[in-house]
């Protein structure tokens, strides 16, 4: 996949994604989101705009949310990355995913992976966020289906259920 374009260099990188170590070769221009999707086959991370506005490609790099369309794969060399595929364990949904399901916080599901990771990060730092804090935290993740309120409810519910795991 990582084609070498003329006059450019390729890099070997190591990355731990959802706990699994990878050693891959990439062209420097390859965006992290394309690396995850095309090279590692982790298609749960979605591409919505590729200019950093919609938040659909949000993943965690070393525990911090980033736009995977605004980061080169080479920049994540040595990093630990978490994608939506890393939330559920052995077929059991994460409490946040359960809360999204229970509170109908998704419709088409396209923004959902990015939204989940943003919410996951929020609950790591704020155990009991108020609705306004939740809205502020997810304002960088566009959703065109839900009108957001069920997402806010779900995140609150997950927080109440101690959904930081």
């Amino acid at each position: 996949m990582a084609r070498r374009a003329r006059g450019t260099n390729v890099r070997e990188i190591e990355m731990k994604v959802n706990g699994i170590a990878y050693h891959e070769t990439v062209e420097p221009r390859r965006l992290l989101v394309d690396f995850l999707r095309d090279q590692l086959g982790l298609t749960g991370t979605h591409i919505g705009c590729e200019h950093g506005v919609c938040g659909a490609c949000t993943v965690l790099v070393d525990g911090q949310s980033v736009r995977a369309c605004l980061m080169l794969a080479v920049q994540a060399d040595g990093a630990e990355v978490t994608t939506v595929e890393g939330l559920a364990r052995d077929g059991k949904l994460h409490p946040l995913q359960e809360a999204f399901w229970e509170h109908h916080a998704l419709q088409c599901g396209f923004c959902t992976p990015g939204m989940l990771l943003t919410a996951y990060e929020l609950l790591q730092t704020n155990r009991k966020p108020e609705p306004d804090a939740i809205r502020d935290a997810i304002a960088g993740n566009l959703c065109r289906c839900t009108g957001y309120q069920n997402i806010v409810t779900a995140i609150q519910a997950a927080a109440q259920a101690g959904g930081r795991a």
């Binding site: 062209e27 221009r29 965006l31 080479v74």
Partner: peptide
């Protein structure tokens, strides 16, 4: 929307 090729250095 993919970046054009470039040479990459990370000093």
């Amino acid at each position: 929307m993919k970046p054009p090729a470039f040479r990459y250095v990370d000093p």
